[in-house]
Design a protein around this nucleic acid. Sequence first.
DNA 1: GACAACCCGATTGTCTGACAAAAGCGAAGA
DNA 2: TCTTCGCTTTTGTCAGACAATCGGGTTGTC
Lengths: 229, 229
Amino acid sequence: MGDMDLQIARQSATLRTQVEDKLRQAISSGRFKPGQRLVERELCESIGVGRTSIREALRQLEAEGLITSYPHRGPVVSTITYEEAAQLYSVRALLESYAGKEFAENGTAQDIHTLNEAVAEFAEAAESGGGSRLIKAKTAFYDCLMQGSGNVFVKQMLTSLHNRVTLLRMTSMTQPGRLNHSVEEIKEIAAAITDRNGAKAAAACKYHIDMAAKVALDYLRKTSENDGD
Amino acid sequence: MGDMDLQIARQSATLRTQVEDKLRQAISSGRFKPGQRLVERELCESIGVGRTSIREALRQLEAEGLITSYPHRGPVVSTITYEEAAQLYSVRALLESYAGKEFAENGTAQDIHTLNEAVAEFAEAAESGGGSRLIKAKTAFYDCLMQGSGNVFVKQMLTSLHNRVTLLRMTSMTQPGRLNHSVEEIKEIAAAITDRNGAKAAAACKYHIDMAAKVALDYLRKTSENDGD
DNA sequence: GACAACCCGATTGTCTGACAAAAGCGAAGA
DNA sequence: TCTTCGCTTTTGTCAGACAATCGGGTTGTC
């Protein structure tokens, strides 16, 4: 009874919250592409709720940076430039290193146990190759990492950054060789944390993000024929 | 003609934005105290706008962490525990150090010039003792620091953290001796940045925040007779 | 043919009024 | 005293309405 799989449809949540999740997912999954306009009435119809709920959900997503609203023109899915992508990965490296360090130095034994389980699950998922299972496993790993850092602000900020990474719309794991490297790097992180080695954990986290950033930014640079005009 | 005092009431902004600012200010100024309930209808009356604008503004503040909403009970001004305050200052130190380092290494000469002007203004304000002038000067300094970091995400996150610090409702500068120290520390930061010394700038930023944190947390610990039940 | 002014449709921003659902509170009853 | 019931308050959500604004197309002029 380790995993408390929180019920998918917790209908108790307010409607607005569900709309938020739906929109977030639509953006993450690429159904709404960066730069695309989001027209209120269309969203009302497709989701089946009133404008109130839609608009309030949009405000939330706007604050998270997933969408950008221009006055009297409405919201569009945020776009992210190459520069911003580089900045995003820089901050991520900074915060995740910190999280890793804190985890290693102050995390509970329980947290460490959970982390290692998440890593094992991720490694398995990487072998069996299930795409959605991989994403789930990686999410679980990061949730655990942020949780273990013991810092609610770090957790919140990293969550936001993770969401925004999806705006780049390239999984950074799709590269054939990358996935194996990724697994190794994550194992390294978990090992350092289990060893209670803060400095090493921070370094491993930073390395992991730097590698992911390199792949992502290279990819962006190559496919940047559509950023000019 | 140095100060371009942007017109107070830029009526072009949407109403919702103005409400956000008003609420943010009310919280920062302590007119709304942590833990206090915010009833929609009261806000409507006191601000003089409809529920729509109020609710959307509240969603924004909620995302920023300034208020916390419980379903079917409405929003309250966020409270912050001692632990969270400590975490907040930790992240602040981390991010501001990073900002200082980046500024020193990559900031433009123009940014550096502006920074030094802001520091001078802050020092003057500290001597003349104008409370609101001090706050303004400090805000200008931090704006410049974040701007100079060249990282929009850092800027955004630090802005959010700065807003939340006000939830602690103790200026951390009110301590008689603290202000002078604060001025010195800030001068140190600016000097390091002007020297293009990244490591030193980072250290100075961290020191500055750590000192502020120490004062703040000591104060919180002393006045924690009202956190039990 | 190019450029400016203008008008019109689409969409947002905002208000009002309405109502179900839930939370909290007080009273009634065991 | 404790539980239960019902009432009040407030939120969550909808529908409809309307002014303001933006963008695009049209018209008119040089």
